[in-house]
């Protein structure tokens, strides 16, 4: 592990505060919590990524991982994914769709747009914790992305 865990940045895009809390709690188990930024909709997610003034304490580096809910108010998760993957400066950021939807067509569309992983959130808490922490562990600590 080349860098301290503290410097790791995860962007969580989730409109449901309960789900957001459960997700953060799951990540907390692996001490990722300090570097998790939570935004409530797609528009906010994009303005965070493009460094608008709404987020003055945002670090210069882009996040290491984006956890994206499928169904979001304002800008939909799939639309956020499309914009990220269409942007040369952002497309290398791993995007994991965390969703309640197991619809085949959503899955197909997400992969067509270049999603890195697609996870159906388990209802059962133990499963959920296992899944989310697994995602964090793999994408943040195991997986490598090109430096930019």
């Amino acid at each position: 592990m080349d860098e301290p865990v503290e410097s790791v940045e995860i962007l969580l895009v989730e409109d449901n505060p309960d789900d957001a809390e459960l997700t953060r709690r799951a990540l907390e188990k692996h001490h990722f919590i300090n570097r998790v930024t939570w935004v409530k909709d797609g528009a906010e997610a994009l303005s965070y990524l493009y460094g608008s003034d709404t987020f003055p304490d945002r670090p210069d580096r882009p996040p290491r991982l984006i956890l994206l809910d499928f169904k979001l108010p304002k800008l939909d998760g799939i639309e956020v994914l499309r914009r990220i993957k269409a942007d040369e400066s952002l497309k290398h950021i791993p995007v994991v769709m965390l969703t309640s939807s197991s619809e085949e067509k959503d899955l197909v569309e997400a992969y067509r747009l270049g999603v890195n992983s697609y996870i159906v959130k388990p209802v059962e808490f133990e499963e959920f914790v296992k899944t989310v922490s697994g995602i964090g562990f793999y994408w943040v600590l195991t997986n490598r992305v090109p430096e930019c």
Partner: peptide, 21 residues
Amino acid sequence: SYSVSHDLRAPLRAIDGFSRI
């Protein structure tokens, strides 16, 4: 069915998650 799949699961997950917490 889409909303069943998405919207009914989220509260269930919350119920289960927070009971566990």
